[in-house]
Design a protein around this nucleic acid. Structure first.
Length: 287
DNA sequence: TGGTAGTCCGAACCCGGCAG
DNA sequence: CTGCCGGGTTCGGACTACCA
């Protein structure tokens, strides 16, 4: 017998073999209602013998909890979703959801009009939960009441939308401190897009750390990808400065080797050891 | 005999896809 | 357009046992 072709054991099978109805078998296995000791004994024995395991998708169907987790990312255009960061978010979500019988879908939230997409997600009963990425204040203000309690945000939160994020302030402070200790005196920050609220925290931390060291502040507007790093670095170098990467945008600097700095490129901190400065932590306060 | 508690069952329902 | 299918949960009603 090929196990791959063997039909799964269902509640119906268990109930039939145990000589009870599906309702009784369900109550016994979930412990959700009254049942006789004899019924419990038979049902539990049969379930164990047959290797019964409740179908998580069917359960989700009953509870109206949905069958998929949606990663909703704000971007100026749908093609911006094809980035390494979002791939990691989706891959990680899929790994976590696999054991729950949930699928993962990626949705684009238009920067200039996320309301209709959010309303659609709230009406869609197949949606178990929503993870907001690159969250803006407009998105936070547009989350329908129906999504409250099953929505979480990476980057920025509100009273209704809990926030989970890496500790970007501590990361910015630690990295600036590391670079100052290493003798750097011109430390630039390649920031995220101006419309992204979560960029504000590391930028503020960077400004404070640089100011505390008595150094000039230099913030360069960037994007999400390697290309923005390649574009931003020459802009800084063209101003006669040798950039030293810092804080939230360090990964973009590191993936964009500086070709314009000539011999000094060899001293690029992208090749230097970095402090372990970022940690994932839940945040209960709005970001 | 009537009231109550415990137990069990049938049917409805959830949703999206598919066949007729 | 309608009905059916998948698997599990829950509601309403039926049945039994027990006690006063």
């Amino acid at each position: 017998m090929d196990d791959r072709r063997r039909p799964p054991v269902t509640l119906e099978h268990v109930a039939r073999v145990a000589g009870v109805s599906r309702a009784t078998a369900s109550r016994v296995l979930t412990g959700s209602g009254p049942s006789s000791a004899e019924a419990r004994r038979r049902v539990q024995a049969v379930a164990e013998q047959l290797g019964y395991a409740a179908d998580p998708v069917a359960r989700a169907l009953v509870h109206g909890r949905g069958t998929r987790l949606v990663v909703a990312a704000t971007a100026t255009a749908p093609d911006a979703l094809a980035c390494a960061y979002l791939s990691r978010v989706v891959t990680t979500a899929a790994a976590v959801c696999a054991g729950q019988g949930l699928g993962v879908a990626l949705e684009w939230l238009p920067l200039d009009g996320p309301e209709s997409v959010l309303d659609g997600l709230a009406r869609d009963r197949s949606v178990a939960g929503v993870v907001l990425v690159n969250t803006t204040r407009r998105v936070l203000g547009s989350v329908p009441r129906e999504l409250h309690g099953r929505v979480v945000s990476i980057g920025a939160g509100s009273g209704e939308v809990p926030l989970v994020d890496i500790d970007t302030e501590a990361a910015a402070t630690a990295i600036v401190g590391h670079l100052v200790t290493a003798g750097r005196r011109r430390i630039a920050l390649l920031a995220g897009p101006a419309w992204l609220p979560c960029s504000e925290r590391p930028v503020a931390a960077y400004r404070a750390a640089v100011a505390a060291a008595g150094l000039p502040v230099r913030v360069v507007g960037g994007g999400f990808d390697t290309a923005s790093g390649r574009a931003g670095r020459p802009r800084h170098c063209a101003a006669g400065r040798t950039p030293t990467p810092s804080t939230a945008s360090a990964t973009r600097w590191r993936s964009a080797p500086c070709r314009c700095c000539g011999p000094r490129a060899g001293r690029c901190p992208a090749t230097s050891p970095w402090p372990a400065s970022t940690t994932s932590r839940p945040r209960s306060r709005p970001g």
